[in-house]
Design a protein around this nucleic acid. Structure first.
Lengths: 228, 228
DNA sequence: GCAAAAGTGTTCAATGTACACCCATGC
DNA sequence: GCATGGGTGTACATTGAACACTTTTGC
């Protein structure tokens, strides 16, 4: 297993697709690069893995730097290692994806010399992206859909208290298809993972809706089945 | 994205969990190491990724070196990057898993100075393993089970022609549970991916069984649904 | 009173699961 | 003729899909 001096010039990064829901759109967090390659292009946040840090910790660190958020759904996505993905250098990236609440995010001050801007973009309206980041985002959306069919990770994207209609909207946005309201309610309520509060939305100009939150205790006990 | 001189000392390998069926057991291919760390321990085959090669190609190259097999089911599994997984060095490994037919494998001559032996081991009776390779194998088994529930990858493990009972046995070995014969046959035949041949097993000492093979054309046309 | 979103059940189709007996062959 | 594994069908339960009207509020 020891040999190949050439491996010395591989580098490894972690890149994270950070997703949220806002204004009825699924959005991804992008940063604007200030350096070559791909100077002034948008990219998903990422960085080199430190020697003493495992990959998950690197992802959490980068997530925290960019979004000031912790305790989120974070999952390793795939490792992209095409020799041509990074110009003039061999950089392999281990991609992660994270789901978080828009309300929880305080976009990090742009105090890095590597980034000049941080913004949310709707996944349906992405700017030109650096490297293979378009492919990575598409792959993360596919994975998010697969996960959502198995377990209710969508709550990670919503405020702590939400209406069933909001939950349904989040499913519809992620899955890109409309769902039947009665079937959706029947199914989500039957999971026993929703707690109904004795509260309703402050009536806007419509009938107030009941507020729910996720029973994270039940959820965690079932997590073994979902994620294991 | 540029910086962190420390990244220079990361190294990246590809390790492959190679599975087959033999003697009614699910087996994994292991190699015996001749060098430190973990000298004389068994490990899954692996090697450093070359600078000009993408990860899939590295996996295929290593697979070919060890098993002389091509055209197999090969899938990226997970990337393991704990700083302590490799003693005295930082080696991140991108793990793959492969399924192949026992009959197709010609174990590679042990002409490497890194390996002194190559053998199949039942997954239920593994020797002590180097690094985190036990964890990697366990993860590959979990993934294989998940895949099998979605699509009939088991045929990759069987001879080209097989009986339905053999196919069922392979499912049972992988899933570690018994299946109902009638339901199993109903379900697999309804997929229309099995071709029945006008042949039977050369009668052993029992009733001859019909031989089937997989319709790889139909299978490939459906692969989009299975793997996409 | 009307516009707008919340809330609520039943029917049907498809799928998965449980289960027991006859058949073809070698010896 | 009997032991051994090959082969077959039906009934039931569970799940997912389709579908329309009443209720509550703000204005």
């Amino acid at each position: 297993m020891v040999g190949f001096k050439e491996t010395k010039t591989h580098e490894i990064t972690v890149d994270i697709v950070i997703l949220t829901l806002h204004e009825n759109m699924l959005k991804v967090l992008l940063v604007k690069r200030t350096k070559e390659p791909f100077k002034n292009r948008w990219a998903i946040p990422g960085g080199f893995v430190r020697l003493s840090e495992n990959l998950d910790d690197a992802a959490l660190r980068i997530l925290k730097e960019k979004s000031n958020v912790q305790n989120v759904y974070l999952e390793q996505l795939y490792t992209f290692g095409d020799p041509l993905r990074y110009p003039n250098s061999r950089v392999i990236t281990c991609a992660y994806f994270a789901l978080l609440r828009y309300e929880d995010v305080k976009l990090g001050a742009v105090n890095s010399d590597e980034v000049s801007d941080v913004q949310w973009f709707p996944v349906e309206a992405l700017p030109p992206l650096a490297f293979d980041h378009k492919e990575i985002i598409e792959y993360s959306l596919k994975r998010t859909r697969e996960r959502l069919e198995l377990c209710p990770i969508a709550f990670q994207l919503l405020p702590k208290k939400f209406t069933l209609t909001e939950l349904q909207r989040s499913y519809e946005l992620i899955l890109k298809k409309e769902l039947d309201k009665r079937n959706f309610r029947k199914k989500t309520l039957s999971t026993k993972m929703l707690i109904e509060h004795n509260e309703t939305t402050k009536a806007g100009s419509k009938r107030p809706a009941a507020l729910f939150s996720f029973d994270t205790i039940t959820l965690n006990s079932k997590r073994g089945h979902f994620f294991s």
